[in-house]
Every structure is written in structure tokens, then in C-alpha cells.
Design a protein around this nucleic acid. Sequence first.
DNA 1: AATCTTTTCAACCGCTATGTG
DNA 2: GCACATAGCGGTTGAAAAGAT
Length: 395
Amino acid sequence: MVRSPCCEKGGLKKGPWTPEEDQKLLAYIEKHGHGSWQSLPAKAGLQRCGKSCRLRWTNYLRPDIKRGKFSLQEEQTIIQLHALIGNKWSAIATHLPKRTDNEIKNYWNTHLKKRLDKMGIDPVTHKPKVDAFGSGQSKDAAHLSHMAQWESARLEAEARLVRESKLTSNPLENQFGFSSPQLSANKAAVAAAAAAAPPVRPKCLDVLKAWQGMVSGMFFVSSDSLESPTSTLNFSEAVPVVGFHHESSMAIPPPLQFPACNITCKGGMNEDVSNSEYEWKCFEKSNQMAPQVKETLDGSIPVHEMSTYSTENAWVLDSFRAAANENASIVNIVEGLSDIIPYNSGEQNSSMAGENTATIASCGAGGNLEDLQGNYWNSLLLNLVDPPPSGSPVF
DNA sequence: AATCTTTTCAACCGCTATGTG
DNA sequence: GCACATAGCGGTTGAAAAGAT
């Protein structure tokens, strides 16, 4: 592989750009597009190498760059993506509109890395420096880790697609309203492709958010420790993260619904229990479904440690209590319910986004555990990806 | 006020990936 | 398949700014 000689030529200026140079570069690109970066400096009358011009444009002069302080949400996105894919700054940048990979990288190195370090979190592995998993990663963590690996690969593929689309589209025309002749030929093709591909909700953050919730329960801390002067948000209020908990902040997961069975399960602290254990309580919504459930409960399907609550048709799963104390996740809950809830509906799983409730439509045959889990994650985490309309940040 | 230390971030360097003839 | 050119990425540097003494 032969290295580009562009910056090795003598007589080319290095170092900080002057306003005059910026003006020349801007004027040229606005008029002609950047074209070949290699030949741009000579055409634009700049004593710079093409590489330097490209960097100046992409990291500073581009009109769609957002500068200034990173929001809490942006910070959290960076942390979560970094936990998943590491120092893939360009891939991370594709999920932070108007932020450059260089800016994100700098921000990570100067702020977030130090902050995590201060919080006792290894910024490389995103795990507590002292193993908070105790005896090792739970099954849930391993499960999510596996999912996270897939999402990691998908993220990188996404980033690659974004790069490719930038190559085939006219970035100036698309983004800034002016055109470059050499790229205009692709306009029709790009427009057709855009029309053919309906806007798809980016679900890529689903698993990483879940994974982050699993791995980094330590993020459930008040914003004070995040050194963000603008935020008054407490993570535990805003993030319905399930599973692993750390210290005193207890994230309350959204209700888990099985409408086909008219069952809703809610997790939370049980004040009736002397030591305020965390537990999952299940309710039947209507009497007409009760016989079905009771039939199952009284039938051949093994009934775990299940005790009836004072509320009619409600029960709590003692095994989940114990599990919760051992950093159990919602996966455990769903897995446990899969032994109890009668699977008698053939309808497809579906999810309800837009409210803080995870819905599993299918209680029937074919609704295997993986479907249930996947469905739960999707519906739960879509709420994380799309904040509620109240305007409160996700993190 | 002067000096030293730390932090920030724009820019560079070196490498890999990809495109082209 | 090869050689080369080019674009892009991630790590690192160093000047300027901010903070501490």
C-alpha cells in the first residue's frame, strides 16, 4: 500500500487555518463542490494538502455542524455506543446528527472517559472496576451480550451504508442546498432509492440500551454526579431500564402485558415485605380470563412458588423476588412466566410503542420464549429510543 | 500580576479500505 | 490479480485557553 504523498510535498502550509483560508475553501466548495480533494487546494488557491482541506471542511467548515456543549442525551448515546462498538467514532457519529467523529472522539477523551473513570467504571470495558456482577455475569447479561454483538455488527454495517449513501448522493445539494455538477447525475437514483425505502425507525439502539442497562447499572445515578450543570434529571426516573440494579437507585420497569391472556405484570418494591424486596406482581384484568389462568395454575403446568395476593386474581412470584436480589432481569421474568402463562393464541407478537408498557400479544402456541423476550425488548426499548412526548430527555 | 499546570480541541500522522486502470 | 491513487478512520500532538498557585 502506497501512502498518499499529498502532505509530504514541500511548501505546503500546516497548522491552524486562517480566516482567509477558510473563506477560500468555503467559496470554492460552495461553487464547485469539493470534487477531488487532491486537486482542490491548487484550484482553490490554497497552499494546503488535500487531506488538510478535507479535514478542515468535514470537521469545521461544513454548514451542518452543530457545535457547543453536548446534551445529556448525546452523552448517553456516546457512552452506550462506545460500550457496544468501542472507538468506532465514525459509526458513533452516524447516530449523533451534526456531530463529527473528531468532535465525539475529543469529547470522549476529555470528558466522558474521565467521568466514567471517576465513577469507578473502566472506560474501555464499561464495567465497574470492581466486578459488580459478583460471582460473574448472569445469564441475562450473557444473553444481552450476545445480542449486543449482533447489534455492534449491525451498527457498523449501518455506518458503512451511510458512508456509501454519502458517496452516491450529493451531500451539498442534499444537506446544504447547493450542488456540485459531478454528483448531480446520481440525484434521480438517490431520490428513487429514498422513495423505495420508507423511513425506518432506528432500532439499533434497542439492544445496546438494554445491554447498557445490564452492564452499567451504575448509570442509575443522579445527574449531579454527571457534572452536567443543565440537568436536573434523575436517571432512575426517566429510564425504565430493567434488570441489573446498582446501589440504591431502583429503576422501575414498565408493566409487562400479555393482553391475549389479559395479564399484566408489574415490577416494583414490595413495601409489604419487611426488607422491601423487589418483586413482580401479576394481575388478571378480567374475570373471563380468570378460569383460563386458574385452569393453568391448577393444572399440569408447574406452578412455581406462587402465592395469592389480597388483590383478587393477582399473584406474586417469589422466585422472582429472589432472582431480583441477584440482579435478575426482565428476561428472567418472561422466562418464568413462560412456564406459567397458558400459550393458546396463535396471533403474532406485537408491540405497543408510545406508552411505557411492554406488551406481549401472544400467549399462545408459537409464542416461544425467545419471541417473548425479543418482543418485550423491542416494545420496552422502543420507548427508550423515542422519548415520551413530554419532552423529557431519555437519559 | 506572574508563573506554572491542566484542559481542550483543531489539526496532523500513519494506517487501512476502497476504487480504478 | 496487481499497482497505484484516493478517501476515510483512529490515535496522537501541540498550541491556546483556562485554572491554580
